[in-house]
Design a protein around this nucleic acid. Structure first.
Length: 338
DNA sequence: GTTGCCGGGTG
DNA sequence: CACCCGGCAAC
């Protein structure tokens, strides 16, 4: 119902700084460092997820935390929630990311204008971009990623940035079978808004819904480059499945029930995305989960045919202020009507 | 134990 | 009327 304010908070944590700055030698750190992250949640749950996200030494470590409303900062949303408020949504796990992700991130970094000046044109933005992503393949769309928040960190020599910021914040679309990755939240929101929500790209007004459909990734550039050094060249069009189990945060109801499917975007918003017969089809739009395997069933969603579960499950108790009024008053949910 | 929400209370 | 919550049934 209102435009998203710029996110607050720092983005690139020095925690991931690699002493030797191996990135610098590769000329990649610059690309990541100069990207002023879209901002981090004001209040992080113990900082576990993000802070620990980039761990030098690992082939590639990511901290992923599905966007919590407060993190996105929609006016209607509450101010930075206390740490505890995010604990339920934050994924502190930083399970290894597969090589594709690593390649994707590197590709992005390589595409940075700052370091691409003399790079071969084979990996230019255009080559990496992909607008059709229904297959679920990973793709990059640097060309659409021009809205990186212009809130650079305090004045610091470019070189310093190169050395200090080895973590790059990426944004992955969680829309079913999409998986698009962008390096700015605004770009991702635009992507979701236009591609998935069918809204006008330039329409500023937003209810923040798109915020729930992407997740944030912290990529340790150092580790990434190191990890990739052992990889054989990966084609951007490589058809490796976008499976990143370690990056996924199961929906609340699935956390205690491994194997349950995550929901898909709300059918009433995207009829074309509703897959008839798909078990999860009627599940509510949980920002916490990516597309689910079509074969998985959702016992919890079946158990209450009258429309059960809604805001509480989607947003969690910690974000009760985001519930629809009905849910807040313990009435039948009016937000996720079938 | 969790969930959704009816029914009823308060202001 | 908006707002809240006890308590219940389904799970």
């Amino acid at each position: 119902s209102s435009p998203n304010p710029p996110r607050s908070g720092g983005s690139l944590l020095p925690a991931a700084v690699s002493p030797a700055g191996s990135v610098g030698t590769r000329g990649l750190a610059g690309g990541a460092a100069v990207v002023p992250g879209p901002g981090q949640p004001g209040g992080h749950a113990a900082g576990a997820g993000r802070g620990a996200g980039a761990v030098p030494g690992a082939a590639l470590c990511c901290a992923v935390h599905p966007r919590a409303p407060a993190q996105v900062g929609t006016p209607a949303r509450p101010p930075p929630s206390p740490p505890s408020a995010l604990s339920g949504r934050k994924l502190s796990g930083k399970a290894g990311i597969d090589e594709v992700m690593a390649a994707a991130v590197l590709t992005s970094l390589s595409a940075s204008p700052l370091v691409l000046g003399h790079m071969p044109a084979t990996h230019g933005p255009g080559n990496c971009s992909s607008s059709s992503n229904t297959s679920g393949d990973w793709s990059w769309d640097p060309s659409s990623d021009r809205s990186t928040p212009s809130t650079p960190s305090p004045p610091s020599p470019p070189d310093a940035s190169l050395l200090q910021n080895s973590t790059k914040v990426m944004f992955k679309c969680l829309w079913k079978s999409c998986g698009k990755v962008l390096s700015s939240s605004s770009g991702m929101q635009k992507h979701i808004r236009t591609v998935h929500l069918g809204r006008k790209a330039d329409l500023e007004q937003s209810d923040g819904e798109e915020d729930f459909y992407y997740t944030e990734l912290d990529v340790d550039v150092d580790a990434l480059t190191d990890g990739l050094s052992s990889l054989t060249p990966v084609s951007p069009t490589s058809s490796v499945p976008p499976a990143f189990p370690g990056l996924r945060l199961p929906p609340r109801h699935c956390r205690s029930r491994p194997g349950l499917c995550p929901p898909v975007p709300p059918p009433h918003h995207h009829p074309s995305h509703a897959v008839p017969g798909e078990p999860c089809r009627r599940t509510p739009p949980s920002p916490l989960s990516p597309a689910c395997p079509p074969v998985v069933t959702c016992p919890l969603y079946r158990r209450r045919p009258r429309g059960a579960k809604k805001c509480r499950k989607v947003y969690g108790m910690e974000h009760r202020e985001m519930w629809c009024t009905a849910c807040r008053w313990k009435k039948a949910c009016q937000r996720f009507l079938d």
